Amino acid sequence: MELRQLIYFDAVVRHGGFTRAGESLHIAQPAISAQIRRLETELGTVLLQRNTRRVSLTHAGELFWARARRALDELDAARADLDQLASVLRGRVRIGATQVLGTLHLSVQLADFRRRYPGLGLTLRSGLMEVLLEALDGGELDVVLGPIHADLSPRYVARPLVEEGLVLVSPPGHRLSDHSGSLAAARDESFVCLPAGSGLHEILTKAAAAAGFVPRIEFETYSPASIRELVAAGLGVALVAGSAARAPGPPVEIYPLPHLSHPAIGLIILDERPLTPAAGAFRDFLSRSVSSTADPIE
């Protein structure tokens, strides 16, 4: 049995005759008839009932066509998979990521993705979410990884990946050692934070307002890591993501804030711009693998 025989047989059934099947396949009608006869001979049964106007399936033909159609569908899917793979291997993925990624181990994920697609181009840009989203809008990035804030514009599509938490940090041995789990305990402290316009700055000001005070932000920096360095040096306290507080770095005191929530960490794309095959492969790869390398969202 040959693949072309299945293709010819399927075309005859779908078009209702040998002539139309030949026209659709750009093959002479006698050649199709000859291959169908060979197929019937090999199977030892008649598949098609022929008359002067139209051919129809015998009962054996109906059973065989159902199986043949599934086989051809699988072949089409395999071809599509290979075409997709070829597109991925020829492409590149431009990724933007904030420094706060929770338990998402991006370096591990990128290395695994590169091993899977060694010929694919990868670029990574780090920055604040506002800047990265502007780059996404401008076509400079394909995807952005970072906190998914509640006020994210509907022009974006966000896929949550891992949870994140908020904690208060202070210098080692600070008086907040008897902290009761409330941000209000730090109302008289100077704060270190990301600049105005950042998600963390907004979270701090809103959380402080809910606790009945306006935070005195004396030091602003563009890096969560430098927030920790400034706090460790004794220049203030800070509200930061739990992953940033527990990452390697200078020692700080960490105070849980169970009543405050941090936006989930996820992947953000522009709704109106379809992903390239390479970027789509990265999105799907990250979604599948995150459960084995991070604490996924249930």
Rank of each mutant, 00 (worst) to 15 (best):
P258K: 03
L128Q: 09
S243C: 05
E40D: 03
L194I: 00
G119C: 09
G121S: 08
L132M: 13
L141F: 09
L47N: 01
D142G: 10
S170L: 03
L39W: 08
P195A: 10
H201D: 14
G139H: 06
H59Q: 14
E189W: 02
G165K: 13
I32N: 01
A21Q: 01
L257V: 03
D83Y: 12
A210N: 00
D76N: 15
L106I: 13
V192E: 04
L25E: 08
L168S: 01
R273D: 06
D142E: 09
G199E: 06
L122Y: 15
V108K: 14
T19G: 12
I254E: 07
Q29V: 13
E202A: 15
R69I: 00
R54N: 08
G266F: 02
R283A: 15
G242S: 09
I148Y: 05
S33K: 09
D73F: 10
V157C: 15
V13D: 10
L267P: 15
M129S: 10
R216G: 07
P172W: 02
G139P: 04
T276I: 07
I217P: 11
A196R: 13
A279Q: 12
R14Y: 08
D83F: 04
D83C: 08
H149G: 06
P118V: 04
P224R: 02
H262V: 04
S153K: 04
A77Q: 15
I269D: 12
T276H: 08
G119R: 11
D142M: 11
K206S: 12
G44C: 02
A97H: 05
R14H: 10
E229Q: 05
S24P: 11
V100E: 11
Y117M: 06
E272Y: 09
G102W: 06
R67L: 13
Y117V: 06
D178P: 01
G139T: 09
P171V: 04
A21K: 04
L136K: 10
R187L: 05
L141S: 07
H259M: 01
R90T: 09
V157G: 12
R70F: 12
I227P: 00
S243P: 02
G127K: 02
L235E: 03
V144G: 04
L275E: 07
I7Y: 13
L39S: 04
S287E: 15
I265G: 03
E130H: 13
D112L: 15
R187M: 05
G242F: 07
L230E: 02
A245N: 01
A211F: 01
R228F: 02
S226K: 09
I32C: 09
V231N: 00
A196P: 14
I217F: 05
F285Q: 07
V144W: 11
S33Y: 13
G91R: 05
T45K: 07
G16E: 04
R92F: 07
R90A: 15
I269C: 14
E62I: 09
V143S: 11
V144C: 10
A185H: 01
L104H: 10
A135D: 14
Q29G: 03
L204A: 02
P147C: 02
T98F: 01
